[in-house]
């Protein structure tokens, strides 16, 4: 000491003051026995630990390796120690040791990143941490973060269901509840892209204009809704039924490869449509013309091609006198010809 005023005094702190500054400190004597402890670490250790139990009995030092004595601890010079309670729940801690003149060490401890778990296990409160310690702020932040994340999850879920509802709306024909043209296009593209066979049926109502002209648009709307119901009832769960124009419908039948399968369904539809549809005490009579194409008739299923060919077959049905079912016949003649079915 040269006596200059700038030199800080050597500190001698009473145990209580040390405990307030560092509630998780331990004072070890040269032999490794615990001589003093901050109030928080004292609560965590077994009741008989302070004073007198051996530090190395109560803690496992994981890093640095080969720290087995107080002398070793004194030589760690500022290095972070990784240790854990030797007994369950094996709470992990980190520590810093400084040598004391008496040959022992002062060891300060804290919880690492698993602090939240440690606080719960050992039932610690805000007053178990020094007033300068940021542990409580850390826990606050963890909790605030998870609250915000939950809000964002809820928001995302609501937006997702709103998006699905909007998509559903964009894919639905509002009058009949069937799929619309856009939905049919994407279902057709999916079917063609899947490589699995399917049949495409184009259904066009006969005499619909007469119903509209005679009974009015409300009657026409009612008829379209009834036809939609019939189409749904006479097709299978996985089939796509779409209204693609005023009185035009398209049905996509996945897995169907043979004309007989399509025509069985088509005939059921025609026979249902043969029954008049009641509207306000009146009988509305319509029928339908049907044309279809089969993906197995093409080397590659192109949606536009199958659609226009089903359309050609439909017009053949119209020309053949309505209430007819016609298959598109590819140029090589493999497909079946028109199969008549009475309306």
């Amino acid at each position: 000491m040269d006596g200059t005023a700038a030199a800080p005094p050597a500190l001698a702190l009473a145990p209580a003051a040390l405990g307030r500054l560092m509630p998780m400190h331990l004072v070890l004597d040269a032999g490794g026995a615990i001589r003093g402890a901050g109030p928080t670490i004292a609560r965590i250790l077994p009741a008989d630990a302070v004073p007198g139990r051996s530090f190395f009995e109560l803690f496992d030092i994981r890093r640095p390796r080969r720290v087995a004595s107080v002398a070793d601890l004194g030589e760690t010079t500022g290095q972070r120690l990784h240790l854990q309670l030797a007994a369950p729940p094996h709470t992990p801690m980190r520590g810093l040791a400084v040598p004391l003149d008496c040959g022992g060490v002062l060891l300060n401890l804290s919880f690492g990143i698993t602090v939240a778990e440690a606080v719960r296990r050992h039932d610690l409160t805000g007053s178990d941490f020094a007033a300068t310690d940021l542990t409580v702020e850390f826990l606050y932040l963890v909790e605030a973060n998870s609250a915000v994340l939950d809000e964002l999850h809820d928001l995302t879920a609501r937006l997702q269901s709103a998006r699905m509802a909007a998509e559903e709306q964009a894919m639905t024909d509002t009058l009949t509840g069937l799929r619309n043209r856009r939905a049919m296009d994407s279902a057709l593209a999916r079917s063609a892209g899947s490589g699995r066979p399917f049949a495409l049926m184009h259904v066009d109502l006969d005499w619909f204009k007469q119903v509209n002209d005679t009974f009015g648009h409300a009657a026409g709307d009612h008829v379209l809704q009834e036809v939609a119901l019939i189409l749904l009832q006479e097709t299978r769960q996985g089939d796509t039924v779409a209204r693609v124009g005023g009185d035009e419908f398209v049905v996509i039948l996945p897995g169907v490869t043979r004309p007989a399968q399509v025509e069985r369904i088509a005939r059921r539809i025609l026979s249902r449509l043969a029954q008049p549809i009641r509207w306000n005490g009146r009988d509305c009579r319509v029928s339908a013309s049907i044309g279809y194409s089969l993906s197995v008739d093409y080397p590659q299923a192109e949606p536009d091609r199958l659609l226009s060919d089903a359309d050609l077959a439909l017009y053949a049905s119209k020309h053949a006198g309505r209430g007819q079912i016609t298959a598109y016949r590819p140029p090589d003649g493999r497909s079946a010809g028109p199969g008549a079915a009475g309306a």
């Binding site: 939240a116 778990e117 606080v119 719960r120 039932d123 409160t125 805000g126 409580v136 826990l139 909790e143």
Partner: peptide, 9 residues
């Protein structure tokens, strides 16, 4: 009562 870490948290 107030626990620094919520139950189940």
């Amino acid at each position: 009562p107030f626990a620094l870490v919520a139950a189940g948290g």
